[in-house]
């Protein structure tokens, strides 16, 4: 053994060095190829898609399917519903969770940690266990197919999540600042509004993007609470169920585009804990 080991070098060194770039390129392809596929198929003419060996590149791209969904109008309803629901969910989530997160962040350490873990655990509950009851009640209250009903449902998943992120944000704001403001005569509420929240603006912005994304992608509650006014993810499912491959790919591309942009900006905030239960199949 010792003959092959000279100052930290060993038999694995050479093959690793040679294979490393190949492996990096392969893994990039594994990530990128599926995304490429959606956009490629959305501009593929029908003839390119069949046979046991569908073409990997489109030689004569067509915008027919993009024109179709943009003009036929059955995209606009779902697009608007998804936009509106995601935006209202985000807004309400901040209004409800930010003040609570501030108070939680000022609790004694042990208690604070318990509350935070409790928030995380509520996110691990299966949506169906909550959803079966919520959907039956909402049906009785006439909240099926309404924006409000879906916003209420999306808040179930968003609130613990945003509160959890914001507790972390508020923890980083020193209490001395609050005390200084209060010595200068500010009320508790005034201190919060003029000192604490402005300092937390960055964290609040990041947290809202996560919530917006969650609501934009959300499928399960949307499916339980919708009979005919689809959201965009439901529209994708409908296209999978009964559309052509290109229709499916086009709607899927519309749903994906804004997200790729947002994730690009969010990447440095992606920490493992933040994602616990946030993304799932």
């Amino acid at each position: 053994m010792s003959s092959t080991v000279v100052a930290g070098k060993d038999v694995l060194d050479k093959p690793l060095k040679l294979l490393f770039p190949v492996w990096v390129v392969i893994s990039l392809l594994i990530v990128l190829f599926p995304v490429y596929l959606v956009f490629m198929v959305s501009v593929a003419p029908g003839s390119a898609l069949f046979g046991e060996r569908p073409a990997l590149f489109v030689e004569d791209p067509t915008l027919r399917f993009w024109n179709d969904i943009l003009q036929r109008g059955d995209l606009w309803g779902p697009l608007f519903k998804s936009l509106a629901v995601a935006s209202f969910t985000t807004l309400l989530a901040i209004v409800i969770a930010a003040p609570a997160a501030y108070v939680i962040s000022r609790l004694p350490v042990g208690l604070r940690y318990g509350v935070v873990i409790g928030l995380l655990v509520t996110r691990m509950f299966p949506e169906f266990t909550i959803g079966v009851s919520v959907a039956t009640r909402f049906a009785r209250l006439g909240l099926i197919d309404t924006y409000g009903g879906l916003v209420l449902a999306h808040l179930i998943g968003s609130l613990p999540f945003i509160a959890w992120i914001l507790v972390g944000t508020f923890e980083t704001i020193p209490r001395d600042l609050e005390e200084a403001a209060q010595i200068d005569g500010a009320s508790k509420m005034g201190t919060l509004l003029r000192v604490v929240f402005p300092l937390a603006a960055g964290g609040i912005a990041v947290a809202s993007l996560f919530v917006w994304l969650y609501s934009w992608n959300e499928f399960l509650y949307a499916r339980l609470l919708t009979t005919n006014q689809n959201t965009l993810p439901l529209q994708v499912f409908q296209a999978i169920d009964r559309g052509s491959r290109q229709q499916m790919a086009t709607v899927a591309a519309v749903l994906t585009l804004p997200i790729l942009l947002v994730v690009y900006f969010l990447q440095r905030y992606l920490k493992p804990g933040a994602l616990a239960g946030a993304v799932k199949g």
Partner: peptide, 27 residues
């Protein structure tokens, strides 16, 4: 950065993609 992309792809879309990949006459 690229490695994080799948996180940004909506679950229902990754379902659609896998259908394109794995179905008969799939990629």
């Amino acid at each position: 950065t690229v490695a994080l992309i799948p996180l940004g792809v909506p679950t229902i879309v990754s379902g659609a993609i896998m259908l394109l990949l794995f179905s008969r006459s799939g990629y």
